[in-house]
Amino acid sequence: MTERDETAGDERDASLHQTILADIEGRIISGAWPPGHRIPFEVDLAAAYGCSRMTVNKVLTQLAKSGLIERRKRSGSFVRTPTSQAAVMEIRDIAAEVAALGLAYGYRLVRRGRRKATAADRARLELPAGGTVLHLVCLHSAGPEPFCLEERIVNLAAVPEAEAEDFSAEAPGVWLLRQVPWSSAEHVVRAVEADGETAELLAIRPGRACLVVERRTALAGAFVTHVTLTYPGHRHALQARFTPAQARAPT
């Protein structure tokens, strides 16, 4: 084989490598191959693309290093379930969290209704008797899977314009961040077992552990909204950044 033939062969292998990599990444990110899906065996991929098993092996190794798949000895390669980090100390757009995982974001409004504030609503938003709230239940998804269940109440005395919004196309958190400035926020983080409705919406078993982040935001001393974000516990972790409460000069 001449040097020119070897160069041409290397270029062909590199091109096939990129083709296979792009194809598999596309199927994973689009949801065509959901988490847990078994990737075709190396010999089958090599036959499908007309290349060597070595080329396929390099592609799968690269995908495993990037966290998109996991390779199990004697079992094959599988699409990996993405692990998200729920931010505790900051207010983040859920769509941005999903995009950071390389997955397509989806949103669905489950329920919307205006109601007289219940005792629980009044406690959460420190409302007087007779106050009214907008109650919203929304489901956020990442690729083909549910990502987060959002239950929110909005103080209509603080944000009366929210009553005119149907929130069928845009998540309320995004709308509120754009519409209403906030001056302070409180977070509570806890673990709960999924009840029947939560389990059904998140496509998990009833009783499965979930990570719950409760947050309420205020403007000029008046609470604007309270939201409960429920994540499937096996796919999420907490993330927080800390700085010293008081810097000390070296002595």
Rank of each mutant, 00 (worst) to 15 (best):
V154H: 07
V133H: 01
W33S: 03
V154F: 02
K73F: 14
D5L: 14
E200F: 06
Y105V: 11
P144N: 01
L109A: 09
G31C: 03
E161F: 07
F78A: 02
A96R: 10
G207R: 01
V212F: 11
L127I: 02
P172N: 04
V213N: 12
E11P: 01
E3S: 07
C138D: 09
D195I: 09
A191D: 11
I91F: 04
V189S: 00
G233Q: 03
R241L: 14
R27M: 10
S183G: 04
I91L: 03
S66V: 13
G221L: 12
V98F: 04
V98D: 09
A47E: 15
D44G: 09
G102M: 08
L101P: 02
K58P: 00
R216F: 14
A32V: 13
P144T: 12
M1C: 05
P35N: 02
Q246H: 13
M1D: 02
H234E: 15
L202I: 07
P181Y: 05
A123I: 11
T61D: 13
D93G: 00
A194W: 07
S30H: 02
A46I: 13
D44R: 15
R122G: 13
A245L: 15
A249W: 13
S66Q: 10
A119R: 12
T83N: 14
P206M: 05
L202N: 00
S15G: 12
E90G: 00
A162W: 04
E25G: 00
R152F: 11
V133T: 14
A218D: 12
L134N: 00
A142I: 01
V159P: 01
D166C: 03
A222P: 12
I91R: 06
A191E: 11
V59S: 07
D10P: 02
P172I: 02
R112M: 09
R27T: 01
F223S: 12
E6A: 15
R80N: 01
E165I: 08
A240V: 15
A249E: 01
G67F: 01
R74H: 08
S84N: 06
R208Y: 11
H135K: 03
L125E: 07
L16G: 01
V43W: 10
S52E: 15
V224N: 08
A169K: 05
P160G: 02
A240M: 12
R114N: 15
A185T: 11
S15E: 11
K73N: 04
F242W: 14
R215C: 11
R208E: 15
A64N: 14
I204K: 00
G67P: 01
L63R: 10
G67V: 13
I94M: 08
T83S: 09
R241H: 14
L103F: 03
W175M: 02
I20D: 05
E42N: 08
T228P: 04
M89K: 10
D121G: 08
F147V: 07
E90W: 10
I29G: 04
V159D: 00
A218G: 13
L219M: 13
P244M: 06
S184M: 01
T228M: 05
L238W: 04
H37N: 12
V154P: 04
L63A: 06
I69Y: 03
R115Y: 07
